[in-house]
């Protein structure tokens, strides 16, 4: 999938100019040095609207090299609009190889999922983040939230969880579930389902988070402790399903509910298309043998 070596005429490699990439790399280095801390950076205008992954795209542009292989997923799927257009963007402006296979990728940009297949030390996971500030819903003032982070003043995060239990009997927050990184900073994991939170803990791959509109970069270095906030008597739990994937039969993956018709027919399928596809292919091979 590698056409030629020269990139699109008139553009620098990976769209951003070298100075900008250096600036972003400096922010990334700082973010890696202080796990979970939101580093401000001079976010650029990108050729796609805010909310479509402008932060993730800038981080990817700053870390990707000509020998990298890029995978882009949107809600676990490789074939949705956002994923396809970002993949094509980098194929055009950076001439890099792209893939839909998790194992082949060296850089994975994601919107709202972590692949089911465990990642390795050779991979970088880049998250697109809409709202990087986990305290935002409890405290609207940015000056105050920064102080709260600086002073580790995180009592309000549990107030939110308390409210969930008081009104619904359990912690109902199901995505963007707040985590504490390396025992210090409370961090928004971007709107991944809480099902994926345990995967962040001590992940061998480097995790980078880019928020384009809010102009923040933060990171979780490989093998870093990531704990989901909870109460002693209401421990953190992930979602479970009564169904297996209708296509590949997996009972361990994150399932999407798909409405089939207007008679109430629905099916549950894996949200990670690569994971599901590979399992189906393996089953087909077995059946043929």
């Amino acid at each position: 999938m590698r056409p030629s070596d020269d990139t699109l005429a008139g553009y620098n490699f990976a769209y951003l100019d070298e100075q900008t990439k250096r600036m972003i790399r400096r922010a990334i280095l700082k973010a890696v040095a202080i796990p979970g801390y939101q580093v401000p950076f001079a976010g650029r205008e990108m050729p796609l609207p805010y909310g479509w992954g402008t932060g993730g795209i800038q981080v990817t542009a700053a870390v990707i090299g000509p020998d990298d292989t890029l995978k882009v997923i949107d809600q676990g799927a490789d074939d949705t609009t956002n994923a396809v257009s970002i993949r094509r963007f980098f194929a055009t402006v950076a001439n890099v190889a792209t893939t839909e296979k998790t194992t082949e990728a060296t850089v994975i940009q994601t919107r709202h999922r972590i692949p089911e297949k465990p990642l390795t030390e050779d991979q970088i996971l880049v998250y697109q983040v809409p709202i990087p500030e986990p305290l935002r819903w409890m405290e609207a003032r940015e000056t105050e939230t920064r102080k709260m982070h600086a002073l580790e003043d995180y009592g309000v995060m549990h107030v939110k969880l308390y409210e969930d239990i008081a009104h619904l009997g359990r912690i109902a927050t199901s995505y963007d579930y707040p985590v504490k990184v390396n025992g210090r900073y409370v961090m928004a994991p971007s709107p991944i389902p809480k099902f994926d939170n345990p995967k962040m803990d001590r992940m061998p791959a480097l995790q980078l988070f880019g928020a384009g509109r809010e102009k923040r970069i933060y990171a979780v270095p490989p093998y870093t402790r990531v704990e989901s906030l909870d109460f002693e008597d209401h421990p953190f739990e992930v979602q479970t399903w009564d169904h297996a994937c209708a296509l590949c039969g997996s009972t361990e993956s994150y399932l999407d509910e798909v409405v089939m018709d207007d008679q109430g027919g629905r099916m549950f399928v894996c949200s990670d298309t690569d994971f599901c596809g590979e399992r189906q292919a393996a089953q087909a091979r077995e059946a043929a043998e």
Binding site: M138, D153, Y154, G155, V156, H158, V159, K160, Y162, E163, I165, A166, H167, D230, F231, E232, D233, H234
Partner: peptide, 27 residues
């Protein structure tokens, strides 16, 4: 007061801020 959270959470906030992590106890 935090007007957008319940009375119980308003009272519990300080407890949680100083490290209480047992929902039943806080309540």
């Amino acid at each position: 007061l935090r007007m957008a959270v319940s009375a119980g959470a308003n009272i519990g906030e300080r407890l949680m801020a100083v490290g209480a992590r047992h929902y039943g106890g806080i309540r």
